[in-house]
């Protein structure tokens, strides 16, 4: 099963620009639920998006420097089942 990695609500995100900083993993690598998957930046916060499930990171759809919004799909994780 593929699980989508979405940008969670960071609060008041209408006025806050959020950009992708970098991914901690490459596609094809195994991740565990709760791992820091990628870092996104607001003005004063560096927020690490936690992996929503354990499995293999099969897709990263947001690149470094890209502006993203709450609910955007950032990548996908293929789980064991």
């Amino acid at each position: 099963m593929k699980v989508e990695v979405k940008l969670p609500a960071l609060g008041d995100s209408d006025t806050t620009e959020v950009t992708v900083s970098f991914w901690y993993f490459d596609t094809g690598e195994k991740v565990s639920e709760g791992d820091d998957l990628l870092e996104v930046l607001t003005d004063k916060a560096a927020f690490n998006v936690p992996a929503p499930a354990s499995g293999k990171l099969v897709e990263t759809s947001a690149d470094e420097g890209q502006a993203v919004k709450v609910g955007d799909i950032l990548g996908r994780i293929e789980t064991e089942q």
């Binding site: 709760g34 820091d36 004063k44 916060a45 560096a46 927020f47 690490n48 936690p50």
Partner: peptide
């Protein structure tokens, strides 16, 4: 001045 980081919330 304020600046934070967040990991697993």
């Amino acid at each position: 001045a304020i600046g934070i980081a967040v990991s697993r919330w």
